[in-house]
Amino acid sequence: MREFVVEADGGSRGNPGPAGYGAVVLDPATGETLTEAAEFIGFATNNVAEYRGLIAGLRAAAALDPAARVRVRMDSKLVVEQMSGRWQIKHPDMKPLAAEAATVLPRSQVTYEWIPRERNKHADRLANEAMDAGRDGRQWEPSDSTADLGAPSASEATGAPAAPPVGWSAPADLGAPATFVLLRHGETALTPEKRFSGSGGTDPELSATGREQAERAAAAFAARGTIQAVVSSPLRRCRETAQTVADRLGLPVRIEEGLRETDFGAWEGLTFGEARERYRADLDAWLASPKAAPTGGGESFATVARRVASARDRLIAGHRGTTALLVTHVTPIKTLVRLALGAPPESLFRMELSAASVSAVAYYADGNASVRLLNDTSHLR
C-alpha cells in the first residue's frame, strides 16, 4: 500500500478577508513533491481556508492513489484536533467542511499530525501565492510556484514576511502588522479583593477560578486559530495562564522580563483603601504624577513605561507580520494601549481590565499602531 504525506495550510489577510489555501502531496521516503494545489477562495476566515486546504490536499492524494495511506500534517491545531475526533466541531461554518474532508478517503487511511508553522512552509507559501494571485484578480496556477526551481518565493527573496494570518483585521495596503493579543492573567486569591499585586510581592499562583479562566481563554484562541507565538511575563500567574494556552495550541512559551507587573513597593498585598490609610501622601503623589513611585522603593509609571516600551520594540522586531499572544498584567497592558493611542499617563486610571480579558494592538511597519480591542471578556461567558 502506498503512503503519502499531505501538508496543507490556509490563510486570510484580515480574518475574515481575502483568503486562499495551499496543499502539497509528498513522497514520505524521498520528500519529493508529487503534486501541489492552491486556490484563492475570496472572502473567508483563516479556519475556513485551512479546511479548504485540507480537502484539496486529500483530493490530490486520492487522485494519485485512492487506496494510499495518508498522513496529514498541518500547523492548525484546531483542524488537526477536530479531524482526529478529540475536539468538538461547534462552529456552523466548520461542520460541513469537516464532513466533506472526512468523505474524501476512508477514515482508516488518514491520520493527522500537528506540526509547527516553520515546518509547514511549503503549504504556507502556496497559500500566500494563491492570495497574491487573488489580489491581482486571477487564480493561482502551477507556474506561480517556484518549488520545482528551488528558488525562493517573492517574499523570501525580498526579505519581507510572507503575510500569514494576522488575527485581528489589518488593512492590506499597510502590510501585515505585528499584532499583539494582550491577555491579562487569570484570577489569583488577591484579584477579587483588588489588592496591589505586582512584581515585588508574593508572586501568587492562579486560583481555581483563574485556572478555569485560562482554560476558557485557551479554548477561544484554539477556535480562532490565529495565535502564532506565546510570550509571557516571568511572574507565576502569567506563566501558568500562558502555559495553559500554549499547551492547547501546541506552542512554546517565551518569557519576556519587560512584561512583568509594576513593583508596588510597600503597597504590595494592600487594598487601595489600606494603602491610602497608611501612606496617604505617597499615594496621592503617585496618583498625581507618573514620576512618583510607591512607598518603599517601588516603580513609577514612567519607569514602567520605559521598560514596557523597550519590550514592545523587541517583540515587534521579532514578530513582524505575525500574531503573538502576550500574557501579562494590568499596568503593562494599559501602558501598551496608552502608548499606541498617544494618550497621557492619566489615561491609565481610565481603563478597566478584567482578569483574563483580551485586548489587541497592531503595529505597522510605518511606525503607526492601531488598538483593535480592549477588555474583551466574551470568551469567559
Rank of each mutant, 00 (worst) to 15 (best):
D366T: 06
Q213N: 06
P18A: 13
E187I: 07
G31T: 05
H319Y: 01
A68D: 02
R254V: 11
S155V: 07
A356M: 11
A288N: 07
V6Q: 03
R276E: 12
P28D: 07
R2Q: 10
M351K: 12
L149Y: 05
V308G: 00
N46G: 06
T322E: 13
V104W: 00
R381F: 12
R276M: 15
Q243E: 13
A160K: 11
H319N: 15
R71I: 03
V361Q: 07
A101Y: 06
F221A: 01
Y279D: 14
R184Y: 11
A127N: 03
A311E: 00
G296R: 00
R236A: 10
S347L: 08
W168A: 13
P18D: 14
S108Y: 04
T30N: 08
A127H: 05
L287C: 11
V361W: 05
E277F: 02
V231D: 00
T191M: 06
S378V: 05
E3Q: 15
W114T: 03
K121C: 03
T323H: 11
H185N: 09
V110N: 00
P92R: 08
M131L: 02
L353D: 09
V181K: 09
E7I: 10
A360L: 10
V231M: 08
L34G: 08
E256F: 10
V5S: 01
P290Y: 01
L54M: 15
T271G: 12
L183W: 05
R239H: 07
R52I: 02
E261R: 03
A56C: 09
A38H: 04
S357K: 12
A281E: 15
P344G: 02
V104D: 03
P234A: 05
